[in-house]
Design a protein around this nucleic acid. Sequence first.
DNA 1: TCAGATCAACCGCCAC
DNA 2: GTGGCGGTTGATCTGA
Lengths: 85, 85, 85, 85
Amino acid sequence: MADIGDNSGLAVAELRQIVERIERLEDEIANQRLDVKEVYAEAKGLGYDTKALRKVVAMRKKDAQKLAEEQEVIDLYASALGVFG
Amino acid sequence: MADIGDNSGLAVAELRQIVERIERLEDEIANQRLDVKEVYAEAKGLGYDTKALRKVVAMRKKDAQKLAEEQEVIDLYASALGVFG
Amino acid sequence: MADIGDNSGLAVAELRQIVERIERLEDEIANQRLDVKEVYAEAKGLGYDTKALRKVVAMRKKDAQKLAEEQEVIDLYASALGVFG
Amino acid sequence: MADIGDNSGLAVAELRQIVERIERLEDEIANQRLDVKEVYAEAKGLGYDTKALRKVVAMRKKDAQKLAEEQEVIDLYASALGVFG
DNA sequence: TCAGATCAACCGCCAC
DNA sequence: GTGGCGGTTGATCTGA
């Protein structure tokens, strides 16, 4: 941590910059969450069951993760067996 | 939902579009979360205590009033227990 | 909250009892975690790859959850369709 | 691990036993977690602020020294940021 | 000691 | 308004 000579051995400007970068990113995330919400609201307006919709999205996500994980497991077991028994 | 009963038609495309919009937004959110993580890692590299950093960021999110009110209850309970006897 | 007349409008004995019940339960949980740890250590001593072992346990858990969830999804969709389209 | 190469024999039973011991312990842990939840729910019914309650329990888990040290860093950062400017 | 994985706490939405 | 639930975030623990 670069110490610029302030009262507490802390680079205040640096710290401030870090915190603000984080907060800016989190603001953007929050906004995008609102966007997601909007899409669901819109879908609801079109007659969709949002609960089921969320389930579908969640399942697709899980399936993708599952695929990735399955390969991991294969790799893990393969290496545990010393790359072929 | 455009049609029930002729579910081989337009509604499928509509549904697909909705799901994809959601998924695209969520991908972006996931990426930005990685960015946040990166900033914390960078801060750590500069010597900051990331745990404290996270706490400060969280505190800034809450307004001071609410923070004080919550702390009051905690203090009440704590002192009732004999200051951690 | 029964107010017995202490200085802060708080039933101190009651609070203390609640906190101690929680802490006792959490102690037991902590001990059982140690037991789990011990089993893994023991398995490691027998030559097992604990990482793979953990994966197996996790997968069995996920499968059990998956079964439960699948029925949920079926129910959800069925009700979304008005119990049959 | 009793045997590699004759993996149709004893090792399978051994492995099964290990996994089941772990799963049994984890079931118990899950149940006790439900018990904890119940106590909090009960406390809520008595008028307690469960969020504050959880904080107090967490504070009691940490020793006071460590708690003070952590708070120092947080305060340092907070004041460096101008007390939430 | 640090990075990565696992697990518990928090916090929103949603239905009742 | 409250309780339950899903998703996200933060803490803990394991292994390198």
